[in-house]
Design a protein around this nucleic acid. Structure first.
Lengths: 104, 104
DNA sequence: GCCTATGATATATAAAAACATATCGCGTTG
DNA sequence: CAACGCGATATGTTTTTATATATCATAGGC
């Protein structure tokens, strides 16, 4: 029974687009064929860990296994960094103190 | 060129042992054969994402792709939770203030 | 000693990923 | 209109995973 891998696929696509890369450019960087990247991003293939690692590397991403209960905290951290990167120099500074609060 | 997948293999083994499960017990919970789990934990196979997801689910782990620059902060979070679980009721409370320091 | 459980290894088979290569329809640009 | 780049799709081949099943050496308990 497959557990959710859709989030991996969409995360890869989102990261590629955030970096302004085309699938062909990512193929050149990662060594994974463009046609395969298309399938991967559509979650149309059960890809190998080595392919995922190659794509993650090319997109400056880290593949992690974390305790499920740490996931909310980790998502907050990541969201904070993403917002910081997006609103560079304009948004509020990242607040470590707020971390344990959690946000809706 | 393979990028590091060893950390995934060792993370899976560590989580299984932390839960006091044998490979056969994990096989029963995840649907992945014990002989395959042995290879996976030895990083002797380039496993499929669906297999990884099944194992992660059985071990209460979440598979995440995060920005590389968020990795140190995330590792701190996870270490804090792990220490908290290990030293439940006896060790010091988890200190958020210490997070940014980082430890060697 | 016997029994049980463990993790590692072996064998054979089926299914699918990975790859190379090509091409398509679509949108944009000049 | 032609050219270009995009993502999606197709084809054929090779390699590898995943599986079932069995067995091994080792360790522990009785």
């Amino acid at each position: 029974m497959p557990y959710e891998t859709e989030h991996i696929a969409s995360r890869l696509k989102e990261a590629r687009q955030d970096k302004g890369l085309s699938q062909r450019e990512l193929a050149a960087r990662s060594g994974v064929p463009q046609s395969h990247i298309s399938k991967i991003e559509a979650n149309a293939v059960d890809l190998r860990l080595s392919s995922l690692a190659a794509l993650a590397h090319a997109l400056d991403l880290e593949l992690l296994l974390i305790p499920r209960k740490a996931a909310p905290a980790v998502h907050s951290i990541v969201r904070g960094l993403t917002a910081q990167a997006a609103g560079k120099g304009s948004g509020p500074a990242y607040n470590l103190d707020d971390e344990e609060d959690g946000d809706g």
